[in-house]
């Protein structure tokens, strides 16, 4: 049996693209894989320059690769992850991918002919579209997961873990650039009673409605998260205490002025808000001070805003 007689049919059946170039980068051979996908006929392109037949190749880049293969007699490679494709060829999953062209792994190898010892170059193209598609799907899933990981399932605002991470980062930023920063912590007034009256579903409806309303009152740069059951936090970057008090009062009034509709009932909701500004404290200290202010708002009648007053100020007032 003659192996040589099998090589042509083998190259035709091969599920990879094979191009052979001579030392001047003229096409000597393309296999069926390439011919069919590029809609070319070997006899018509044989002897033509690679760059004349495939006019949209990354020319400077490929030329350098080919030069290195020829001069150093070493292989060169290209990976779809780094360069998605070299030849603009269609792929066989046109409907299920966002990409128009076949993702490719490409090997460029030096060849010498047994007959005349002349130098040739083989370009081998492997279809990596599947890997490309899987990677895209993975990437999308990762993004969704990352998003889901930050979000509180009920209210759609940031969850406590993410919100607290952001607080840490914002505090570092405020420290570095010596910018102001304030924190609001607020709590729905008498939420336990509300739950008892309207049931937990009613309570959930209130939590969702209130978070949506508050979100519309904040700036894009403010960071709004659910701190606990009915406790929420807002990080206000670039905001000193006076500005934070304005935001807090606006939120407090807006919630008190409306009711939440639930099962044809109108539920009246109010908030108590504590406010503190960053003056170099740690994250824990800042949260604690804001919490003290919130506690004071609760103690002083609810449905109101209180700023944290440092003990020094407090002492002054007492005196």
């Amino acid at each position: 049996m003659q192996i040589a007689g099998l090589l042509q049919p083998l190259l035709a059946q091969l599920n990879s693209g094979v191009l052979v170039l001579d030392a001047e980068y003229r096409l000597v051979f393309i296999n069926q894989f390439i011919a069919r996908r590029a809609n070319l006929v070997l006899a018509e392109v044989q002897g033509q320059l690679l760059f004349d037949v495939f006019t949209d190749l990354p020319r400077a880049w490929l030329q350098r690769k080919l030069d290195s293969v020829q001069e150093l007699q070493i292989p060169a490679f290209s990976n779809w992850e780094q360069r998605q494709y070299i030849f603009k060829l269609p792929h066989l999953r046109p409907l299920s991918t966002g990409s128009q062209y076949m993702a490719q792994n490409c090997s460029i190898m030096p060849l010498s002919s047994a007959d005349n010892n002349a130098g040739y170059i083989c370009i081998l193209i492997e279809d990596a579209t599947d890997a490309f598609v899987y990677q895209q799907q993975l990437h999308n899933s990762m993004q969704q997961l990352e998003q889901a990981n930050r979000i509180d399932g009920l209210t759609g605002i940031f969850n406590r873990r993410y919100w607290q991470q952001q607080l840490q980062l914002e505090l570092q930023r405020a420290t570095r650039y010596q910018h102001p920063l304030s924190l609001l912590l607020f709590d729905l007034d008498k939420f336990k009673q509300l739950n008892d009256t309207y049931g937990h579903q009613g309570g959930d409806a209130v939590l969702m409605s209130v978070s949506q309303q508050i979100a519309t009152l904040l700036r894009d740069t403010d960071i709004f998260g659910r701190y606990g059951g009915e406790e929420f936090g807002v990080i206000l970057p670039e905001t000193a205490l006076s500005g934070a008090m304005m935001v807090a009062n606006r939120v407090c009034q807006a919630i008190a002025s409306q009711t939440v509709s639930y099962n044809q009932q109108h539920i009246a909701v109010t908030l108590s808000i504590g406010v503190a500004s960053f003056t170099g404290q740690s994250v824990d200290e800042l949260i604690q001070q804001t919490d003290i202010a919130l506690y004071n708002a609760k103690r002083q009648g609810r449905n109101c805003v209180r700023a944290y007053a440092s003990e020094q100020n407090y002492l002054k007032k007492v005196n």
């Binding site: 290195s68 292989p75 060169a76 490679f77 990976n79 992850e81």
Partner: peptide, 11 residues
């Protein structure tokens, strides 16, 4: 950068 790194290494 990734492409340069792999190219340089392979050469």
């Amino acid at each position: 950068e990734a492409e340069m790194l792999t190219d340089i290494s392979s050469v």
